[in-house]
């Protein structure tokens, strides 16, 4: 159910996510120190390619990572196999990617 390639992808995406999560939290803590509002923050991220790439990469890594995790739970706990299992894996990945892309777009285009 998890072959070496999926395992590799899941570890790789975890490695990508870890520094991005820390970066996100650090910037959030820093940003609210001076009492910035959400609207002001969005004002600053708007049009920034840097932040779009930062969050875009995060969203892509999350989608892959979580889809593989969902796959494991679907198989071991819900006993789903074969084509249905692949379908669930792909759907979770694509849904997360679309939802994430929408958020990234909002941050970029705000």
């Amino acid at each position: 159910m998890l072959d070496a390639r999926l395992y590799f992808l899941q570890r790789l995406t975890a490695l990508i996510m870890a520094p991005l999560v820390l970066g996100h939290i650090a910037v959030m803590i820093y940003a609210i120190q001076g009492g910035l509002t959400a609207a002001e923050i969005l004002n600053r991220t708007a049009g920034s390619i840097g932040w779009a790439v930062f969050y875009g990469t995060f969203v892509a890594a999350v989608s892959i990572h979580a889809a593989i995790g969902v796959r494991v739970i679907a198989h071991e706990t819900l006993k789903i196999k074969g084509a249905a299992l692949s379908l669930i894996t792909w759907i979770s990945g694509v849904v997360l990617l679309l939802m994430g892309a929408r958020a990234v777009f909002a941050v970029f285009a705000a």
Binding site: M1, D3, A4
Partner: peptide, 9 residues
């Protein structure tokens, strides 16, 4: 040991 039922599970 790298296939579907392999060590990575």
């Amino acid at each position: 040991v790298s296939g579907n039922g392999g060590c990575h599970n």
